[in-house]
Design a protein around this nucleic acid. Structure first.
Lengths: 190, 190
DNA sequence: GTCTATACTTGGATAGAC
DNA sequence: GTCTATCCAAGTATAGAC
């Protein structure tokens, strides 16, 4: 195979457009144009917009978890790894390619389309809870902490930070939200 | 005037639909049907979808700030009021009628449509920062806290909580996220 | 103010030729 | 595998009658 094949071009274009415009805002025609593919080509590889979206969402989901793992599996204490994850370089104004899908009525109404979104955020929370548990075990964090709740808080700060940044058309509120939760977390570390 | 006039019916219907389906997902026809109004009626009162949305967003924005004020201006210490605000009854699975608009490409691309969204979340943060400042002044919270950052965190937890809940199709992750940040905040109170 | 008719574009997909 | 032609509904709006 030489170069990228059409099928993958279509999937990648769909990922981009879903990120930028969501499911209801993305038309087959737009996907084709972005991918440089014709109608026939798209409908040869996929049954339609929905199937294409399904594949696109699954890939974005896998990528998001892998990216998180890169920070969380890294070196350092539990809190250092959480900090690295929260502070990692992000395209804040673009928002989260997975989280943004939760605002799409046709995604949440379709169990198959919602499933990868749900799994991704659920696993992310579970993984963060693990890291927080390590912090507890190491005495970095107080034994009484509800790590599952705290993991949800951490993910929510990211997802909500994107919302604030997009509203303001500026990344600062995102950074503030992250700073705020880190300040709370690290003064618990002793 | 007897009963609700058509103009207001149209605005309220638009508010509902924007909340549920966003701007790109809401058609003039859907608005008319939801409002029980005809085409001519809608285009008599408004120049089109955009103007209607503008009015709808402004009203939802005002309402959101007023609702927040109800908790934040209430009785109790700063932390008690923040807690009341975070724990207030919410239709979690519907998400935030203002925050959800930040995921709409046509809203954020249009300065006039984005403005009320931006103002609402910015004011909300400012108001929360005030309350947190009161908590600092009262010795409830450590003097070193960055209240602007913390206010962003609080709003982000709400906005992100909605995202997690909608992904899971269940309110629990929202409640966890709130619990987590409250646990951090209240153990700082001394 | 509201209704119906009309218009043009886009969305989403199928059919059949190459 | 890809292209072009075709199809029908929906989106978004204007025109003019009542």
């Amino acid at each position: 195979m030489l170069g990228v094949d059409t099928r993958n071009q279509l999937i990648d274009s769909t990922r981009e457009l879903l990120w930028e415009r969501g499911y209801v805002g993305t038309s087959p025609k737009a996907i084709q144009q972005h991918a440089g593919a014709g109608q026939g080509s798209m409908y040869h590889h996929f049954s339609g917009k929905r199937e294409l979206a399904l594949e696109a969402v699954r890939r974005s989901a896998d990528e998001l978890l892998a990216a998180a793992e890169a920070q969380l599996r890294g070196p350092g204490t539990a809190l250092e790894r959480i900090t690295a994850y929260l502070r990692r370089e992000r395209e804040v104004l673009r928002g989260c390619p997975i989280g943004r899908l939760t605002q799409d009525p046709e995604i949440v109404a379709d169990p198959e389309l919602r499933a990868p979104v749900d799994e991704t955020l659920t696993r992310l929370r579970a993984r963060l809870a693990e890291v927080l548990d390590e912090g507890k075990a190491a005495g970095e964090l107080p034994a009484g902490l509800d790590t599952a709740a705290l993991a949800a808080t951490v993910v929510a700060v990211l997802q909500g930070g994107y919302v604030l940044a997009r509203a303001a058309d500026a990344p600062e509120p995102f950074d503030q939200a992250v700073s705020g939760v880190l300040a709370l977390l690290t003064t618990h570390a002793r």
